Computed example of a mutant assay.
Amino acid sequence: MLQRLATFVDGDKPMSRLAAAGAGVVLLLGGVIVATTAATPRQSAVASATDCLTSTGTAWRLDPEQQRHARTILAIGQQRQLPPRAWAIAIATAAQESSLRNDPTPDRHGSSGLFQQTPPGWGTREQVNDPTYAATAFYTALSKVPDWQTLPLTVAAQTVQRSAYPDAYAKHTATALAALRELADTELDCDQITAGSAAPAPRNPDGTWPKEGCVVRPDPTTNRGCLTPRTAHLIAQAKGAGYANPGCFRPSGPGEHPKGRACDWMMTSGGAATGAQRARGDAMAAWAVANADRLGIMYVIWYRQVWSPAEGWHSYTNPFGGTGPSGEHTNHVHISVY
């Protein structure tokens, strides 16, 4: 039945040839062919809460002091009538900056308190060491960030904090969401809290993806070749979400790159991503999955894992035998679109 459907696409991930938009997909994973069902029009491609929490770190078990400060952050956000996404950003920020502990001792940069704010810009020393004042000041600054409601959590937090570790906030998303569920009794859409929303790509009236040629010339990321309009839209949305330009078109080889339908976002200059680089890759992969239905994303590969709308995240082994950071996708996030 599978016959010739299984073809190697991309060198990043083997996929089937798509007979038409919305056609079934055949995956060859680790040498095993697995038939799947493609997303129907408007089918949600948002990962489950479990997937989201897994991709954004392990939630802490908050002790009484940390719970007290998390409740203060929640209370101030509710008083200011801000949405739950703002509460999550604030808790994740405080988790990164102070481990949700109110240390009044200035660090070597002069920062202290729950959000590690620095006088005089954030207030007096006494004020920044007051959790209620500190949370209020954070929310005030967050509210002034353009499009903070749709920026990835880590980008919104970094815009406020201007940290030396700009991508570290993402790893505290699980802690923030767990705290909201426990302390605010609020069920949240994990992916949208984490990733932010992208503007949707154009669809046909019936909700299917229009067939597109490689007509955007040249590919602005390589200054050669071409991209499909949907790929160009993906790049623009990723840039708006705070991610740098990828590399997309390749002149030869199997798969989506020569068709202008795939891009690689490098997290390092070559080696495997660790620390803040890994956190940024995690954040981008979560952003892509959360917005897959809006952007027409066919699959995402990151850090030995591959995601597709039909199967979610699962283990990835390069079928071409590729190893190292490039072959295992530990230095870049790969995204292909329909």
Rank of each mutant, 00 (worst) to 15 (best):
M266E: 04
P41W: 14
D103N: 15
R4K: 09
R68K: 12
Q3D: 09
V289I: 11
M266S: 11
V145Q: 09
D189H: 06
L2N: 07
I335T: 06
E126H: 04
R261Q: 15
G123M: 11
A184R: 04
E65C: 08
W122K: 00
V289N: 02
A279V: 01
Y139D: 03
A286H: 01
H329F: 13
D191P: 00
T274F: 11
I33K: 11
Q43V: 06
A70N: 07
A90V: 03
H109E: 12
L27E: 15
P319F: 10
L27I: 12
E187V: 14
G281F: 13
L114K: 01
P325Q: 08
Y316V: 01
P258H: 04
V46T: 12
P325D: 08
T58W: 06
A236P: 03
G281E: 06
W148H: 03
A39D: 09
E187I: 10
P309R: 08
A20G: 03
I76H: 02
D10P: 01
Q149T: 10
A262C: 10
P104A: 05
G22K: 15
L74S: 02
R250H: 11
A135L: 01
W209C: 09
A184E: 09
A94Q: 01
D185K: 10
A86S: 11
L234F: 14
A279P: 01
S48K: 00
S111Y: 05
I91F: 04
A38W: 13
L100P: 00
A6G: 09
T105G: 00
H233P: 02
A92E: 02
A174R: 00
A92D: 04
G113F: 11
S308Y: 03
C248P: 05
T7M: 13
G270Q: 10
Q192R: 12
S326N: 14
G121F: 11
P83F: 14
A94Y: 02
G327E: 14
A184K: 03
F249I: 07
N102C: 12
M1I: 05
S143N: 11
D147W: 00
V160K: 06
L28Y: 07
A176R: 00
T231E: 12
E182S: 15
L153D: 01
L183N: 05
A199T: 13
A262S: 13
S44R: 07
G24I: 13
W302Y: 05
S99V: 02
